[in-house]
Structure formats: structure tokens, C-alpha cells
């Protein structure tokens, strides 16, 4: 009898251990977003190791002139960005890009700390993202071409290389809730090393992205970026008029390509520029058509 009970217990233990093993081996990572870009914003997606990504981003003029310039398509080109991203080690993406706005050169890094799994043992994907952008305009684009380290300082100094730097850092959490719905939320911090007298150096922000799949390759996408007007970190008596940026788009994604066409009121493709310097509202005068194309190569 004792032997039977012992055998039963052992069998139960082995079985439950086997099931646990099976659960562990059957846990697969979930692809929350097909592309590392959703319009201008980054998602938690990081390509496979040794993958190179190339991004072409373009924003046309605003749509306020109507048919006379084909809703901005024939208007003065608003912004263009060309970017390269590479994943040298698993979950770490390094990038470089050039943008027409302020002739920015941006260097970026994204690290995915963990990824959602299909068995919900990891319920969300979590990533951190940082961008260093360098303003490439000539010195005479900055009023007198000199800076002071504080408002009370009186001796101007020539603009140095690091004065041109600005930073954007973001923590993002995403989850694929159903086969058709993926959502990402995040918080960010933006810092400019050099600003005008009536501007702030620092800005916090909140972000939300969503993707609604409507066919195996097509999705409707939503972006919302909200600058947070926090009086405690403001250096100005009157808070600058930070405006949120929004985008509604359509994405067609395959394994190596993603094509996104959208309307947005964000002025640029560089995240710190969009957070700190968006003066446009999401209305007829502020929105523009744009597209983002990404292409991947595996090595």
C-alpha cells in the first residue's frame, strides 16, 4: 500500500514537472508590433540579432491650402529623415539618422529588457530608448550666435559643439491584448542643452500608441504624445505652449518591409523636436500627410 502511495506521488511529481517543462518550452515571444517605428515613434520591437534596418520618413506640407497644392503633397516639403538601425547583440538596437529639420544628426539606442510571451508568463514587453540629436545649423541660425550659461550671466560665449546636443529618453511598455489589438504606453524626458530665453531646457512627456489589425498585413495605427506642463521644473514665469502631437495611420507590414502612411500634426520626426517645439494643432491648418518606410536585411 505504502509503495503504491509512493509510486502515485512520484508519478504525480514527475507528471507535474513534465508539464512545467512543457510550459517552459512552449513559451514563445509575442510580436506586439511588426515594425520598430509606428509613424514617428519607436515601439518596443527590436529586430533579430545582426539585422540592419533602413528607414525613410517623409512629411509633406500642411493640408491647409487644400487642392491648390494637393493638400500639401505639392507644397514645400516639411521634413525628411533617413535612418539606419542595427542590432549587434540580442535586444539592443543602435541607430543613426539625419533630418532636414534643424539639420539634426541623431544617434539612438534602444534596449528591450523583456518581451511578452504567449503563455503570459511575461505579460508585457518593456524597453528603454534614448536619442542624442545634434543641431547641425550654422551659428548665425541662433540669434547672436552666442550663449550664456545662466540668465544672470552677462558674458556671452561662442556656441560649442555640445551646446547643440539635445536628448530624449523613454521607457515604453507594450502588450498585444488580442490578435488585432496592440497597445503601448510610455513616459519620456526631453532635454535641450541650449534654448531661447523664454524656453525650458527640460520637459516630461506621456505617450500612447495603438495598432488595430484589420487584415493579416494591414493595421490602423494611432499615436498620441502629450508634453506634461510641470510647473516645478519650469524655468519660465509663463509656461511655454507645448502642444500634443497625434497621428492616425495605415500600416502594411511584411517580414522585411513596413509601409505606413498617416496624417499627423507633429512637425518633425525627431522625438525631442516633436515634444518641445510642436506649435501645431490637430486641425486643418496643422496636419500633414506623411509616410514611413522601413526595410530590413539579415546578415
Amino acid at each position: 500500500m505504502k509503495k503504491s502511495i509512493l509510486l502515485l506521488l512520484l508519478t504525480g511529481f514527475v507528471c507535474s514537472y513534465s508539464f512545467a517543462q512543457e510550459e517552459e518550452t512552449e513559451s514563445y515571444p509575442v510580436t506586439v508590433f511588426e515594425s520598430n517605428y509606428l509613424v514617428d515613434d519607436q515601439t518596443t520591437m527590436v529586430f533579430d540579432k545582426k539585422t540592419l534596418g533602413y528607414a525613410i520618413q517623409h512629411k509633406f506640407g500642411t493640408m491647409n491650402n487644400g487642392i491648390s497644392d494637393l493638400w500639401g503633397i505639392y507644397g514645400a516639403g516639411r521634413d525628411i529623415r533617413l535612418g539606419l538601425e542595427y542590432v549587434p547583440v540580442k535586444n539592443l538596437q543602435l541607430g543613426i539618422g539625419i533630418t532636414k529639420t534643424k539639420m539634426y544628426t541623431d544617434l539612438s539606442a534602444k534596449y528591450r529588457i523583456f518581451q511578452q510571451t504567449d503563455d503570459n508568463s511575461v505579460p508585457v514587453s518593456l524597453a528603454v530608448y534614448g536619442v542624442l540629436a545634434i543641431d547641425g545649423r550654422s551659428d548665425d541660425s541662433f540669434e547672436s550666435g552666442t550663449v550664456i550659461p545662466g540668465k544672470s550671466d552677462t558674458i556671452p560665449q561662442a556656441i560649442s559643439f555640445t551646446n547643440r546636443w539635445s536628448y530624449f529618453s523613454q521607457v515604453m511598455v507594450s502588450r498585444k491584448f488580442t490578435e488585432w489589438l496592440s497597445v503601448q504606453v510610455g513616459g519620456s524626458y526631453t532635454h535641450y542643452n541650449m534654448v531661447k530665453m523664454d524656453e525650458n531646457h527640460d520637459l516630461w512627456g506621456a505617450h500612447a500608441l495603438a495598432k488595430v489589425k484589420i487584415s493579416p498585413q494591414s493595421s490602423i495605427t494611432f499615436n498620441y504624445n502629450q508634453p506634461l506642463k510641470i510647473e516645478a521644473i519650469s524655468e519660465q514665469p509663463t509656461m511655454p505652449d507645448y502642444k500634443p502631437s497625434m497621428a492616425i495611420g495605415w500600416q502594411i507590414a511584411t517580414y522585411t518591409h513596413a509601409f505606413q502612411i498617416y496624417i499627423s500634426n507633429a512637425p518633425s520626426m525627431v522625438p525631442q523636436e516633436n515634444m518641445m517645439y510642436n506649435t501645431r494643432s490637430f486641425d486643418k491648418d496643422g496636419i500633414a500627410i506623411g509616410f514611413t518606410i522601413t526595410r530590413l536585411w539579415n546578415f
Binding site: 535586444n91 539592443l92 539606442a109 534596449y111 529588457i113 523583456f114 528603454v128 534614448g130 536619442v131 542624442l132 541662433f142 540669434e143 547672436s144 552666442t146 550663449v147 550664456i148 550659461p149 545662466g150 540668465k151 556671452p156 555640445t162 551646446n163 546636443w165 536628448y167 529618453s169 532635454h191 542643452n193 541650449m194 534654448v195 531661447k196 530665453m197 531646457h201
Partner: peptide
């Protein structure tokens, strides 16, 4: 190690914060 890598990436990017103001033309 993962957390450290994340911290190092952020720290490297933010190691040079300055607080300068552009002097306007009079």
C-alpha cells in the same frame, strides 16, 4: 546584466546635460 546595460545606455546618452540660453540679437 540587462538592467545594467539599460542604465549604461541611458547614462551615456545623458552624461553631458547643460543649461545654456541663446543670447538674442539686440
Amino acid at each position: 546584466i540587462k538592467l545594467l546595460m539599460a542604465v549604461v545606455v541611458i547614462a551615456l546618452l545623458f552624461s553631458n546635460c547643460e543649461y545654456n540660453f541663446i543670447v538674442p540679437v539686440e
